[in-house]
Structures are given as C-alpha cells and as structure tokens.
C-alpha cells in the first residue's frame, strides 16, 4: 500500500483584475532556471515549476502512534483565469525498514517522497491527515502551502488590490494506492471553516500531475462556489433595495462567473472522478442555482431601473 498526502489552498489573487500572461509567469517563477508552463485554452492557466522543502519530523497516525518521517515535500502554484491562485503540496509516504536516517542526497534522488523509518499505520496516517482541523497539519504541509501562497501574493507585479474578500479554502486529500482495489473510489466531504477533505482509493497510481490536476480542479470549483455564496450573502438580497444588492453582487459578475469550467483540463481519470462527484455533493447544481439567483436579481434591478431612486443608486 502506498499513501500520497496532499493539500490545496485556494484564494483570490491580490490583483484588481485578471493579470496578463507575462505577469503570471513572473509571479509564479518560484525557482530560477525553471519554466512556468502556460496555456490559454480552454481557460487561461499557468503553473509554476515544482519547489521542495526538506522535512525530518514525527508523523502521527490517528491512534496516536508515531513514526519518524524524512524526505521532501513537493509544492507548486497555479493561476486560473489570471485570478484564482492555488498552491499545492504533496508527499508520497513510503515505509522503509530500519530506524536510521540516510545521507541527504538519498532523499534528493527521490524528490516528493517522505520515507517513514519503521512500522507505519497507513490508513491511520491518512485518517489523521484528513481529520485534522486547520490549526494543525501533517508534517507542516499546510504551513508550507500557505507560505507559497504568501510568497506569490507579495509578488511586485501584483497591484495588491483584492477583487473580493473570501477566506482561503483548504482541501486536504489522501490517495491510497492499493493493488487490490477495484474501481477508483472518491469521497468528498465539506467541513466547516472552508475545510474540505477528499479520500481517493485507486489500484494503480497514474502520474502525480494527473492527481494534482484533479484535486486542484475540485478545489478551484469548490472555492468558486464558496466565494459566490459569500458574495450573495453579503449582498443582503431581501434586506437591501435590489439596486443596492446588485452593486454588491458585482464582484461575482466581474471575477467569478466566467471561471466555472469543471474538468476542463483533466484527463480521462480526472473526468470520471468529477462525474462521480457531480451526483453528490453536486457542485454544479448549486452553482447553477446561485448564478440564476444573481441573474434574477439583476433582471429585477434592470426592470426597476426606470424608477428614479433605484437608478440613482445603481449608477452613482
């Protein structure tokens, strides 16, 4: 059994509008001498080179059993639509016999792997990773990820104007590779506090990029929905005049609505995983309903636009 752990953090880029490709490349250049990969179709997308950090720390299983882990965490950052920033961290856990740490070059020959020195409770480690709250994370993966977000957000090419205020969302995932497993199984749980967990069971590991792409895509759309719901809540529909609510809904129209494109860049495996998630929790259903709500508000405000007081509010 092999265990791959990861986390994705998603937030709005600190920039007033979508940024041009050249800026995206500058902001995502995490490693000198490495390329930022970009694509324009079906949606503008840029991904940073991989970056790594070394760890030598205790890994705790849910039972409280501890094992020492030594190796490297791999991180990367991506930008979708020139607006949504995502940082990912991933590590593949590999139990090795014997309790001794090896020369550091050994771990650098297998980047992205953390070797656990001794007996390792794999399902228990996955459970601990997924069930932790936002204040702790296995091997400090969350802090590493947050550090990447911070590093990119302070890039001098960004104008530091936030298009909307939403809490960063955290998606924790664990992929258990079990040769005996049949069809891939995926379980998505929405927890409070902008925390999500995904457990994936599969028989054969694909390329790590495929997994990262899938989890980042899920995190992206979950964040879009979360942000949209938050904008709707703050627009005080029903409390304020329609014109006033529409003004407050504007960030959603400017920055969010055009970004919804589930599984657009995913391979076959990713697309089938998305399909499974669409029946439950049904992200697209809720998104469509929310978008319709916004459009209805706008239609109503437009219908009322001839009435002077609303007009004044709308165009001030």
């Amino acid at each position: 059994m092999v265990l791959v752990l990861g986390e994705v953090q998603t937030t709005a880029l600190r920039h007033s509008g979508g940024i041009p490709q050249g800026f995206a490349e500058a902001a995502l250049a995490l490693t000198a001498g490495e390329r930022v990969r970009v694509s324009e179709r079906p949606i503008s997308y840029a991904v940073s080179p991989r970056t790594y950090t070394g760890v030598d720390c205790t890994i705790e299983a849910r039972s409280g059993a501890k094992v020492r882990g030594v190796g490297t965490l791999m991180g990367r950052a991506s930008l979708t639509g020139g607006r949504v920033l995502q940082c990912s961290v991933v590590a593949r856990l590999e139990p090795v016999p014997g309790g001794h740490r090896r020369a550091w070059s050994h771990y650098l020959a297998r980047l992205g792997v953390v070797e656990t020195l001794g007996r390792t409770d794999i399902p228990g480690t996955a459970a601990a990773h997924l069930s932790a709250d936002r204040s702790v994370s296995t091997m400090g993966m969350g802090a590493f990820c947050g550090g990447l977000v911070g590093r990119i957000q302070k890039s001098p090419v960004l104008d530091q104007q936030l298009p909307l205020r939403v809490r960063r969302t955290v998606l924790r995932w664990a992929a258990v590779v079990n040769e005996d497993a049949e069809d891939p199984k995926v379980l998505f749980t929405v927890r409070e506090d902008g925390l999500r967990e995904i457990k994936l069971e599969l028989a054969a590991p694909g390329a790590i990029d495929g997994l990262l792409d899938l989890f980042e895509d899920l995190a992206l759309h979950d964040w879009l929905l979360t942000a949209l719901l938050s904008v709707i809540e703050q627009s005080r529909i029903g409390v304020e005049q329609p014109a006033q609510s529409v003004v407050r809904l504007r960030p959603a129209v400017d920055h969010l609505l055009h970004l919804w494109m589930p599984a657009a860049r995913l391979d076959e495996f990713g697309q089938s995983a998305w399909k499974a998630l669409e029946s439950r929790p049904g992200l697209t259903r809720q998104w469509d309903a929310s978008v319709k709500r916004i459009r209805d508000q706008m239609a109503m405000a437009a219908a009322l636009v001839d009435r002077q007081p609303e007009r004044a509010q709308l165009f001030r």
Binding site: Y52, T53, G54, V55, D56, C57, V70, T72, L73, V89, R101, W104, L108, S137, M139, G140, M141, G142, A143, F144, C145, G147
Partner: peptide
C-alpha cells in the same frame, strides 16, 4: 534544498 535538522517541518 537544505538538509533539514531533526524537527524540521514544512512550518
């Protein structure tokens, strides 16, 4: 990529 002393995490 610095060789981490024991007790090093991503944090």
């Amino acid at each position: 990529l610095d060789d981490p002393p024991p007790g090093t995490t991503g944090a």
